[in-house]
């Protein structure tokens, strides 16, 4: 049995006259015990998908199951089994750390003591602050408390909606380590994030953009499908270089990527010729080097080239 199945889900919202298509025929499967990432910018439909899977919303079309249960028919049963951490960490700022955790345990008719072993790793890190109000915690600690609250009833599937947004790099790293540890306890984790660099930390990811899935695969699988040789370009005059490269023939795209520009050339690109040509354009110090694509390169390529996207139907790779 798959932990989560989503099959041809569609959902749109009406706001006055305007209709927003939040999800346009989305399908995916999550295996049991998998750490599955849904990667996409704001407005790509991640939250809507989470809400449908956690039975908070009804889809317009399509079906979905969680832990083998149908999301519409068996919603009461699903609510007993899933853990959910909504986008904005849902804690009570005026309750203490311990009171927050007790409250969420109470909702599921359990207690902290009963499932302490499950949250021990995470909760022990914040336990010394248990009398402190949640509103006075740092971002990283709030996040740990929210995760403890979502886990306290021993869920089989955990949905985490953008848990690392707005949290600093140290806390983000620690959080992903916590998720890895949780996976060992046989909990399926579905996590969404707008940060492409977090994709590599998942077993498999779905790339989402404007309500559609661009691709679903392991991080290596996704970068492996990138069909062109990617080049990094570097010079003193970085801004001028963008403008020139975008004009140049044989270049599909050129985007700044931190210290370098990433250049996607046409298939029959000749590197030596190009290097000479760019030098002649006023960049004598041009430094072109072949590089391996990142998830972000792939995401951008799929955005620009819809023909390479996964088809809307079921993904059968796994």
């Amino acid at each position: 049995m798959k932990a989560v199945t989503v099959s041809n889900i569609r959902k749109s919202f009406k706001n006055g006259k305007a209709v927003t298509e939040a999800l346009r025929t989305v399908s995916l499967d999550v295996e049991q015990g998998e750490l599955f990432g849904i990667i996409g910018p704001d407005g790509s439909g991640k939250t809507t998908l989470f809400r449908i899977l956690t039975t908070l919303m009804l889809a317009d079309e399509g079906t979905a199951t969680v832990d083998g249960l149908e999301v519409v028919k068996d919603f009461r049963e699903i609510r007993k089994r899933v853990g959910y951490m909504p986008g904005r960490f849902s804690l009570y700022p005026d309750l203490s750390v311990e009171e927050n955790l007790t409250f969420f345990a109470t909702l599921f008719n359990t207690s902290i003591d009963e499932n302490y072993d499950l949250v021990k790793d995470i909760y022990s890190q914040i336990e010394r602050f248990k009398t402190r109000k949640a509103g006075a915690l740092s971002g990283g600690m709030k996040q740990k408390l929210a995760l403890s609250c979502a886990l306290i009833h021993r869920p089989t599937v955990l949905f985490l909606d953008e848990p690392t947004t707005g949290v600093d790099a140290v806390s983000r790293k620690e959080f992903w380590e916590l998720l890895r540890n949780l996976q060992r306890q046989k909990i399926t984790i579905v996590v969404s994030t707008p940060y492409m660099d977090e994709a590599g930390l998942c077993d498999r990811v779905a790339l989402m953009q404007q309500g559609s899935i661009l691709d679903i695969d392991s991080p290596q699988g996704i970068t492996g499908k990138f069909s062109r040789q990617l080049w990094s370009a570097r010079t003193e005059k970085m801004y001028d270089l963008i403008l020139s490269l975008r004009e140049m023939q044989g270049i599909v795209s050129c985007y700044p990527f931190g210290q370098v520009h990433h250049v996607v050339p046409e298939k029959d690109f000749n590197i030596t010729q190009a290097q000479d040509k760019i030098r002649a354009m006023g960049f004598p110090d041009i430094d072109l080097a072949p590089i391996a694509p990142t998830i972000e390169d792939c995401f951008m390529h799929l955005m620009n080239h819809p023909e390479n996207r996964m088809t809307a139907g079921r993904n059968n790779e796994h």
């Binding site: 908070l56 849902s90 909702l107």
Partner: peptide
């Protein structure tokens, strides 16, 4: 508004009790 209602709804508790 805080989003805690989302978590309450996703739990098995009958919300009216809350």
């Amino acid at each position: 508004e805080m989003g805690t209602m989302e978590v309450i709804l996703v739990s098995p508790i009958v919300p009216i009790r809350v």
